[in-house]
């Protein structure tokens, strides 16, 4: 009864939220309306000046990494904080006694020639494409976050196929352990902050890339520094992706039996039809 009351209350609240949002949205200018405040107040400057001021062809990159670079630093910190939280909560025993080595699966090498070969063929392209997305972010959609996630996914793919890093295995070169990934994430966030503080050291505001002594043309300097910042985001994000995977997947054992709580009769159920 109590559960039903709760569900009713939740439905009431959500329904109210829905109606309220609907009422509010009707007052908003339509999406993409060129005469809406969102398109006439701040945006024109970004559209007209971004190329000249920041050197980035892609306006999204100009806004994210330069005009509102401080937000991006914050978002990087949010992602790092997620990795930190997972590390604290899930990998609590680190530094303590060693875990028992679990069986194959998410935590062990998958011995399959097909998977191994496919990973060898695909992974280099995946990792390279991640770097391309990072570098090309100035011109096309992409940048540090997207590239970082792709790179992290490449690492996760390798990790899934080749198992965790183990000192007695050659695969340990690739699978980044929790600590190594975490160091990567920290280093990325630190690098971002360091770029910001470096700008202060050269007399500008925090993250004021224009003052950095990287060349004559301020727009070009900003472009270079933006790439630096994006690279820092890239490192932080890919490190965090690896941390999340390592902390969540560690200890998963493939037992050769059905998964826990697996219902072993799906085939019989199918035959009814």
């Amino acid at each position: 009864m109590k559960a039903r009351l709760r569900a009713a209350a939740a439905a009431l609240i959500l329904g109210g939220l829905f109606v309220g949002l609907l009422a509010g949205v009707r007052d908003l200018p339509p999406i993409g309306d060129p005469s809406s405040p969102a398109s006439t107040h701040v945006s024109p400057r970004f559209i007209e000046e971004a190329r000249r001021e920041t050197g980035a062809l892609n306006m999204v990159t100009a806004v994210l990494a330069d005009y509102r670079g401080y937000d991006t630093l914050g978002e990087t910190a949010v992602i790092f904080a997620a990795g930190l939280g997972a590390f604290v909560i899930l990998a609590a025993s680190i530094g303590g006694p060693r875990r028992e080595t679990p069986g194959p699966g998410l935590s062990h090498r998958v011995d399959s020639l097909l998977l191994d070969t496919a990973a060898r063929v695909l992974a280099p392209f995946l990792l390279l494409f991640a770097v391309y997305v990072l570098v090309h972010g100035h011109v096309s959609p992409g940048g540090g976050f997207q590239g970082g996630v792709l790179f992290g996914l490449g690492l996760v793919t390798l990790r899934l196929v080749w198992g965790p890093p183990r000192p007695d295995r050659a695969a340990s070169r690739f699978g980044p352990g929790v600590r190594a990934s975490f160091l990567l994430a920290s280093a990325g966030l630190l690098a971002y902050i360091a770029i910001g503080i470096a700008a202060m050291a050269f007399g500008g505001a925090f993250l004021d890339y224009g003052v950095l002594p990287l060349g004559q043309d301020p727009a070009h300097v900003r472009e270079l520094a933006t790439l630096g910042v994006e690279a820092a985001v890239f490192v932080a994000v890919s490190g965090t992706v690896a941390v999340l995977f390592e902390t969540i997947a560690v200890g998963v054992a493939e037992t050769g039996r059905p998964l826990p709580n697996e219902d072993p009769a799906p085939v019989e159920a199918r035959e009814e039809g």
Partner: peptide
């Protein structure tokens, strides 16, 4: 090209995992 490699590989991995987990064969 990537699909041509990745799709069969994924299918293989699924089938292999199912076999290991003992999913019965019809």
């Amino acid at each position: 090209a990537i699909l041509a490699v990745a799709n069969p590989t994924g299918t293989h991995a699924l089938a292999r995992a199912a076999g290991r987990a003992g999913v019965p064969v019809w």
